[in-house]
């Protein structure tokens, strides 16, 4: 397999990498770029722990090839805070105890941010359906939904 050279932008930084033609973006992020915030919970798009955005669109990075993102703009959980300023969602998740083990948290935060950019004032049901592809086994989702709403309210007010 001949490796491919890919140029991309990740969290605002220009990034170049080489990858195998069949290598998922998730493996590139984790193993080649050491951006381990995105997690592999399943590798089949069923758990959402590897959520990132590519050109503004929420995707599972396990279902994207590294080769496909040449020229693309990618954001990951590592790019969510602004320097030492946490994003309102990040603060709301800590304040609201919206995670226990925390392994699904990066994916949920990335997905929730994508939701609030599209719909700043979602109903609980809309949040639940939007996040249906993000499995959490610890919390029963209750505090996650509440934290998203706290952050949404804060962002609407800001």
């Amino acid at each position: 397999m001949k490796s491919l050279h890919v140029s991309t932008t990740i969290n605002g930084d220009p990034v170049e990498f080489i990858c195998d033609p069949d290598e998922p973006l998730l493996d590139v992020l984790r193993n080649r770029l050491h951006l381990t915030g995105a997690k592999e919970g399943c590798g089949t798009g069923d758990c959402g722990a590897c959520s990132v955005t590519v050109n503004g669109r929420l995707v599972c990075s396990c279902l994207v090839l590294g080769a496909e993102v040449d020229g693309a703009v990618i954001t990951t959980i590592e790019g969510m805070a602004d320097g030492d300023q946490l994003h309102p969602l990040q603060r709301a998740f800590i304040d609201g105890a919206a995670f226990q083990c925390g392994v699904c948290t990066p994916g949920i935060l990335v997905a929730a941010k994508a939701l609030l950019e599209k719909n700043p004032d979602p109903t609980d049901e809309e949040v639940r359906y939007w996040l249906a592809g993000n499995l959490c086994r610890c919390t029963g989702y209750d505090k996650i939904i509440a934290a998203v709403q706290v952050a949404a309210a804060e962002m609407r007010g800001a």
């Binding site: 798009g45 959402g48 959520s51 590519v54 669109r57 929420l58 995707v59 599972c60 279902l63 994207v64 997905a111 994508a114 939701l115 939007w130 996040l131 249906a132 592809g133 993000n134």
Partner: peptide, 9 residues
């Protein structure tokens, strides 16, 4: 078809 994430693709 699939989740929000899958819908993106």
């Amino acid at each position: 078809i699939g989740s929000t994430q899958v819908q993106g693709r």
